[in-house]
């Protein structure tokens, strides 16, 4: 019993790690697509311009900062929702 439980935990960890890694890769690709679309418009030369690089890097940094803020707000909302659910449960349980 003890052993099977441990095995499940290890599998779970692997699954979570893989998920994190795949999430990272997906957001990497999405970031490239988005910033490329917004920053690279000139196709008269195949050289990437200084301004295009700068724009893309700013785009990435800004997106990450935005993501951080969205995540903060999201967590706040979830906490409030959880508290409300708990309060409801207490009310109906009693």
């Amino acid at each position: 019993m003890e052993k099977t439980h441990e095995k499940i935990d290890i599998n779970q960890l692997d699954k979570d790690q893989l998920k994190t890694f795949s999430d990272f890769l997906i957001s990497y690709n999405r970031l490239t697509e988005m910033c490329f679309k917004d920053c690279v418009r000139d196709f008269t030369s195949h050289e990437v311009k200084e301004t295009e690089v700068k724009c893309s890097l700013n785009c990435m940094e800004k997106y990450l900062k935005m993501n951080q803020r969205v995540s903060q707000r999201f967590q706040e909302f979830q906490m409030i929702a959880n508290e409300n659910a708990m309060a409801m449960l207490k009310k109906t349980g009693k």
């Binding site: 893309s56 940094e61 800004k62």
Partner: peptide, 15 residues
């Protein structure tokens, strides 16, 4: 929210 709030001009990296 990115589409609606962040204009696609990236002269700066700060929000």
């Amino acid at each position: 929210c990115h589409k609606k709030c962040i204009p696609p001009r990236y002269s700066e990296s700060e929000l």
